[in-house]
């Protein structure tokens, strides 16, 4: 499936990239999306990004909720006029039959308070299941997108469940030699859920958050937006872990989100400055 998507989007001018080697909540955090959405230069890329969402962990007991899963992400800047048709073409390429499935574009405006970003678009439903987030970025890191990028984020596990017609993500066939998704990931989901929700040492996490934030500032002072952005990604993930541990109160929550946003915005601003795009 990934190979088919690579070949489909590769044939349409996308640079095929590799996953970013950091823990992050979504493909949108990949610098190839966040940073490249800034500025006037055209940019087309496609890549897989493992995504970690600590609060979505269900100890391996939910048929499609995971704290670690894979997103396939496509970013096209500026957004092409036939983006919806291109997207549907990619679904056909991975074997979705439009005469037997119900594909719908359901309003879902995207906002990432930690990235200072928002866009309008839809969640794409296949027979009621959200399989893709489809967004026209309007702002990133607090900057208006000029031009607007179109972002497609496919939930690979969910699409695979459709194509293989299985009810439970852990029953997915990982290959044709009898290895299932559960063989690969079930124990991982159990242990990571336990760690995310119950075990992770919160003092250590608070400390890591502070250190990532400080290092981000350090990079910004050195006018190095890319390493600064990496630290913002790190801080964001640590915040998600703290959130899963339930140690951040409602009032503090906003303050933490604001802190991460400031780091991300700082990195985006530095990136704009470095490229000479600040007005």
């Amino acid at each position: 499936m990934i190979l088919r998507l690579h070949s489909y989007w590769g044939a349409r001018g996308c640079a095929i990239l590799q996953p970013y080697d950091m823990r992050m909540g979504a493909g949108t955090f990949h610098p190839a999306t966040t940073l490249r959405a800034l500025g006037p230069d055209p940019w087309n890329a496609a890549f897989v990004q493992p995504s970690r969402r600590p609060t979505d962990g269900r100890y391996g007991e939910n048929p499609n909720r995971l704290q670690h899963y894979y997103q396939y992400q496509v970013i096209l800047k500026p957004s092409p006029p036939d983006l919806q048709e291109l997207y549907l073409g990619s679904l056909a390429a991975i074997g979705i039959d439009f005469t037997r499935h119900d594909i719908r574009f359901v309003e879902d405006d995207w906002e990432s308070p930690t990235l200072g970003a928002w866009g309008l678009g839809w969640e794409v439903w296949c027979d009621g299941m959200e399989v893709t987030q489809f967004t026209y970025f309007q702002q990133m890191g607090g900057f208006d997108c000029k031009p607007v990028a179109g972002e497609l984020t496919y939930g690979l596990e969910r699409l695979a469940m459709y194509i293989q017609n299985v009810d439970n993500v852990y029953d997915l066939r990982f290959n044709d030699a009898g290895v299932s998704y559960g063989d690969v990931f079930l124990e991982n989901e159990r242990q990571m859920s336990t760690w995310n929700f119950e075990v992770a040492d919160t003092d250590t996490l608070f400390d890591l958050f502070r250190k990532a934030a400080a290092e981000c500032e350090n990079c910004l002072a050195a006018k190095l937006p890319i390493p600064a952005y990496e630290q913002a990604i790190e801080a964001s993930h640590i915040f998600n872990l703290l959130n899963a541990r339930g140690v951040i109160s409602v009032a503090e929550r906003q303050a933490y989100i604001g802190r991460v946003r400031d780091l991300a915005k700082g990195a985006c601003t530095a990136y704009m400055e470095k490229n000479g795009w600040m007005a």
């Binding site: 005469t99 037997r100 499935h101 299941m129």
Partner: peptide, 25 residues
């Protein structure tokens, strides 16, 4: 949003799965 070629069998099946996951949650 479609008159499916199979009378909607697969659509219903897909929707059932999604609802099952939601209810499971």
């Amino acid at each position: 949003n479609i008159d499916a070629a199979d009378g909607g069998e697969r659509i219903v099946e897909g929707n059932r799965k999604v609802l099952a996951a939601r209810l499971s949650d």
